[in-house]
Amino acid sequence: MADDKGLLRGNATTLVLSVLRDGARHGYDIAREVERRSENSLTFKHGTLYPVLHALENEGLIASEWEHPDGERPRRVYRITETGLAELERCVRTWQEFARAMERVISEPAPAKG
């Protein structure tokens, strides 16, 4: 699963938006949360996350701002927008329909011959 880069890349939007639905996070936090929730089945090079974040921000699905917590390093924090929530809902619905269809195809027993 971890080696299937195409599958991961194709669903990057859904993964990022899902993690941000529960609250604002910075990039490192998002990467760690994806790994944690998937029990390390979805591992990826963390650098590939930022092009996705910047693209989602360009599309208005997420917004970001610098945070300067006391005594800590400044970090850029991302949060989901209303448009992002609607897009996430659409992505999740599409994924669930696809997964159900796949499951039906995979689990359907082959018809008896003769």
Binding site: K45, H46, G47, T48, Y50, P51, V52, H54, A55
Partner: peptide
Amino acid sequence: YQYGESHEVGQLFLETWFAH
């Protein structure tokens, strides 16, 4: 190493930026 090859990350960023 965990972050990824610099040229791959850079190229991906460039592609995303160019597309937007």
